[in-house]
C-alpha cells in the first residue's frame, strides 16, 4: 500500500494544462497547412504527385488548397514543392463543422463554430458519446481512448464515452465505413435518441483516407451513413488527442476565440 502511494506521489499531476494553459507539441508535429498560392507555379504538380490521398486542390491557381479531410498530414507535399508554397504549422485546431471548411487555403485558421444555444444548453456541460469503428485501423480509436486518459482527461469537461447507444447523445465514427460494418453502424445510429450528434474522426471517416476508392468501403461516414448530416469533422491520421479535445470543446462552446496555446517539448529541435 505504501509502495502504491509512493508511486502515485512520485508521478504527480499528469493532466495537461490545456485549455487554460498551453499544449506541448514536438517541433516536427504537422498541424494546419499554410499555403502561399502566389508561389505556386502553374503546370507543376510535384505536390499532387507526392500526395498519398489526392488532398491538393486548385494547383497553380490562387485557390491552391489542401483538403484536410483527405490529408494524412505526412507533409510529403511540402517536401516535394520546389517553390516552398506549402508548409505545415503546428496549429492543432483542425476540426470543422462542414466538409467545405476543411479545405485549408492561405495561412488563416478556420475555427469550428459552436452548436446553437439550445443544443449548447443540452450538451454543453454533459455530453455522452458512443463510438463505432467502421473499418478503423485502431489509430483513431487509440487517440480517442487517449483523449479520455488522465493526461488529456476528457471527462473534466463532462464528455465521456458510454457503452450503450441508448445512453448516448451522439455517435463518433472512425474508419472508411467498411461494407461489413454499414448495417451495424446504421443500427447503432438509430439506437441513439434524438437530438443527437454525429462526429467523424480521422481521414478515413471523412473521405476514405488511404482506403478511398476501396470496392468494399464507402469513403467515409457521409456515404456510409447516408442522409445523416455530420456535425463535426475532426481530421488527421489519426488526429492528435488535443485536436480531438479542441474540436469537441469548440463544438460545445467551451473553448472560444482564436488564442493558440502552443508550447515546446524541448526534445528534438
Amino acid at each position: 500500500m505504501i509502495g502504491i502511494l509512493r508511486n502515485r506521489l512520485r508521478l504527480g499531476r499528469q493532466t495537461i494544462a490545456y485549455p487554460e494553459g498551453p499544449a506541448r507539441f514536438p517541433a516536427r508535429f504537422h498541424g494546419r497547412p499554410a499555403l502561399d498560392a502566389a508561389r505556386c507555379v502553374a503546370g507543376c504538380s510535384a505536390c499532387a504527385e507526392a500526395c498519398p490521398t489526392d488532398a491538393l486542390v486548385g494547383l497553380g491557381t490562387p485557390r491552391l488548397g489542401i483538403d484536410m479531410g483527405a490529408c494524412l498530414f505526412c507533409a510529403r507535399c511540402a517536401e516535394a514543392c520546389p517553390e516552398g508554397a506549402i508548409a505545415f504549422t503546428r496549429d492543432y485546431r483542425l476540426a470543422m463543422r462542414t466538409r467545405d471548411e476543411l479545405v485549408a487555403r492561405g495561412d488563416v485558421p478556420t475555427l469550428a463554430r459552436a452548436l446553437d444555444a439550445a443544443m449548447q444548453r443540452r450538451f454543453g456541460r454533459s455530453l455522452r458519446l458512443r463510438q463505432v469503428s467502421a473499418g478503423g485501423c485502431s489509430g483513431c480509436e487509440a487517440e480517442l481512448n487517449a483523449a479520455g486518459n488522465i493526461q488529456f482527461d476528457l471527462s473534466r469537461f463532462g464528455v465521456a464515452f458510454v457503452a450503450s447507444p441508448r445512453h448516448a447523445d451522439g455517435l463518433v465514427v472512425t474508419g472508411p465505413v467498411s461494407e461489413h460494418m454499414r448495417g451495424a453502424l446504421r443500427a447503432t445510429w438509430e439506437a441513439v435518441p434524438a437530438p443527437r450528434l454525429l462526429i467523424a474522426v480521422g481521414a478515413c471517416a471523412i473521405s476514405g483516407g488511404p482506403l478511398a476508392g476501396s470496392p468494399v468501403c464507402h469513403d467515409g461516414v457521409e456515404a456510409g451513413l447516408p442522409g445523416v448530416p455530420v456535425d463535426l469533422f475532426i481530421p488527421g491520421c489519426p488526429p492528435h488527442p488535443v485536436t480531438i479535445l479542441d474540436g469537441l470543446l469548440r463544438l460545445l462552446g467551451r473553448v472560444e476565440g482564436d488564442r493558440l496555446a502552443l508550447a515546446e517539448t524541448g526534445v528534438v529541435e
Binding site: 498519398p52 473499418g135 478503423g136 485501423c137 489509430g139 460494418m181 478515413c204 482506403l211 476508392g213
Partner: peptide, 27 residues
C-alpha cells in the same frame, strides 16, 4: 467486419499511396 480490401488496393503498386496503406493495415 473490418474488411477494407487492403491487399487488393496494394496490388498494382507501388504507388504514392502504398506506404500509407501499409501503415493502415493495423494503425
Amino acid at each position: 467486419y473490418q474488411h477494407r480490401g487492403v491487399e487488393g488496393l496494394l496490388e498494382g503498386g507501388p504507388t504514392r499511396r502504398t506506404v500509407a496503406l501499409a501503415e493502415s493495415v493495423a494503425g
